[in-house]
Design a protein around this nucleic acid. Structure first.
Lengths: 190, 190
DNA sequence: AAAAGGAAACTCACTGATGAGTATACATAA
DNA sequence: TTATGTATACTCATCAGTGAGTTTCCTTTT
């Protein structure tokens, strides 16, 4: 067994990632994560001071990868800004086909911890959403759209709306509909 | 203590309502609900066959009241359809000021139970969202808007997007922004 | 170069609390 | 007296977190 701190910590985080995203926060025990990571619970507590701490680190570790995925979908499509933003929604549609897809981990975690407003995991979610919104606003500004920051918020609302609706009705047509609405709002701001 | 079945069942449901909505599903124990209702756990299990059953009934009991609130906000405002729909978002803004407000119970429950796709509580959420969407579509049809059903979906997406974003960033400006987007989309369909 | 020491990374086995659900019995209204 | 409704007191599983001790590896001393 690797006696390398970074390696072990990463394995724990990876196990936490899979289990928390798949089953939720309170549904997953620290024992289950330790077992999945192939270490004992005490070792887990050596690397993370509490379950709450682990939850927060789990979400922080998702910030950059999620952002990168969105940007890639945007960048990889040729066309107008509206088309490129629509490509983000299309990327989410494709992701949602995967059997392990469970929507947005940030939103689901924040919803589950709604009675703990100051929880670091919720802050991590706020940071992530903010970074995405800022990136969008910058993009819209580059493309010389009117009301770039309002528009960015509206696109965020539509995207998170897609995630929300998908939790209840597992029908990706809603994501497409949100993409169309986003496209329309962007085109009206040209 | 009232030995009236309906009365007791209602008290249990009321207690479940408050606790589930406030703290989430898995964070609330059956013991806590029984205590809040002023009965013993055994009595609770006499009226509900399991915790899952109670969760489902909790959400089903919220369907009509939530729908009524939305309709009232819509009806109580004079103006164009766009104005009346905006009033719904404005109603949510006002609700969100209340310290006990925790967003949409249907979405939060569905998110928490995302690993149990067939759970009756998620079905109850789907029914509720569907009824709201259908009502909106009917309203838009009455007002002779183009693409009434698409438009209804877009408004639903914006509203649920508001709930989602509010879970993470407690800033009601997002609800207003969603309301403005909804207004704009509706006006474009006149 | 070899031994000693100490810190870092780990395990085993446990605690006290709490979880969902139940066996049995008693009370009340029809 | 019988069905309905309620209570006391339990079961057994699982929870987050910990106490005490062990292994590995690197550094320092001789």
């Amino acid at each position: 067994m690797a006696r390398n701190s970074q390696d072990t910590k990463l394995r724990i985080l990876k196990a936490a990632n899979r289990l928390f995203y798949s089953d939720g926060i309170r549904a997953v025990s620290v024992d289950a994560i330790a077992e999945k990571a192939g270490i004992t619970k005490k070792t887990l507590y050596y690397h993370f001071k509490s379950k709450d701490d682990l939850v927060a680190e789990y979400l922080m570790s998702r910030d950059q990868p999620n952002l990168d995925a969105m940007r890639k979908w945007f960048d990889d499509v040729d066309g107008s800004v509206a088309d490129k933003v629509y490509a983000i929604f299309d990327g989410v549609v494709r992701s949602s086909q995967h059997p392990k897809w469970r929507g947005c981990g940030f939103l689901r975690t924040a919803g589950e911890l709604a009675n703990m407003p100051g929880h670091p995991a919720i802050k991590a979610g706020a940071v992530h959403k903010k970074r995405f919104e800022s990136w969008l606003a910058d993009v819209f500004l580059e493309y010389k759209l009117k009301n770039s920051s309002s528009l960015a918020r509206q696109v965020v609302l539509l995207l998170d709306g897609s995630f929300a609706v998908m939790m209840v009705k597992h029908d990706s047509a809603y994501i497409e509909e949100a993409g169309l609405a986003a496209k329309q709002l962007i085109e009206a701001s040209l």
